[in-house]
């Protein structure tokens, strides 16, 4: 039996939650919170989102979505355009192809995996930025941002997991 139009709309809306949530997180991360070093150390919400959904629901976080989220980060940050778009597309491709290694594994494995992926993402963005600005950039802020991201990831895992259980089993 084909689903009715209302069911389709409902499914579409639920299905777009991972992408919309990522965009909202990126937007919230660029608010002026007035905290010391916040803009430098703001967690890598884009990398977290793309990593999580590429493992659990790659159908809801396709390559195009990763590109879109990265592009949005680039637009807001004022940095090189295309930088995070490239990084997140590569993160999605890598994680989605290796997702069997993480599916159904313990929390620690997922966290460890995120640490590896985020380190790769930060390293790549540092390399590209250094080439873009034609000088070796100080990696310390990026290392700080990476550390904060890894520390915050378990919290985001709770959020993503909750959303996945509440909204997505139906589709």
């Amino acid at each position: 039996m084909n689903p009715t139009p209302m069911v389709r709309v409902n499914q579409f809306l639920r299905g777009s939650v991972p992408i919309l949530l990522s965009l909202v997180l990126v937007l919230l991360g660029s608010l002026p919170f007035g905290l010391p070093y916040f803009s430098i150390l703001c967690p890598l919400f884009g990398v977290m989102s793309v990593y999580y959904w590429s493992i659990y629901r790659p159908d809801l976080m396709p390559l195009g979505a990763a590109f879109l989220i990265g592009f949005f980060v680039d637009v807001l940050s004022g940095g090189p355009m295309g930088l995070m778009a490239l990084v997140l597309v590569l993160v999605q491709a890598m994680v989605a192809s290796q997702r069997r290694a993480f599916l159904g594994k313990s929390f620690a494995v997922g966290w460890w995996g995120f640490g590896l992926v985020a380190t790769g993402a930060v390293l790549l963005s540092w390399l590209i930025s250094s080439v873009f600005f034609t000088q070796i950039l100080d990696p310390l802020p990026a290392i700080g941002q990476l550390t904060v991201s890894i520390a915050v990831y378990p919290l985001m895992l709770l959020l993503f997991g909750g959303i996945q259980r509440a909204l997505l089993p139906a589709i």
Binding site: S30, P32, F33, S39, I40, S77, G78, W126, P141, A142
Partner: peptide, 15 residues
Amino acid sequence: RVIGDSGGPFVRTML
């Protein structure tokens, strides 16, 4: 009014 403090590790900008 400052409405955005985005930047990131390699740029220092505000909106």
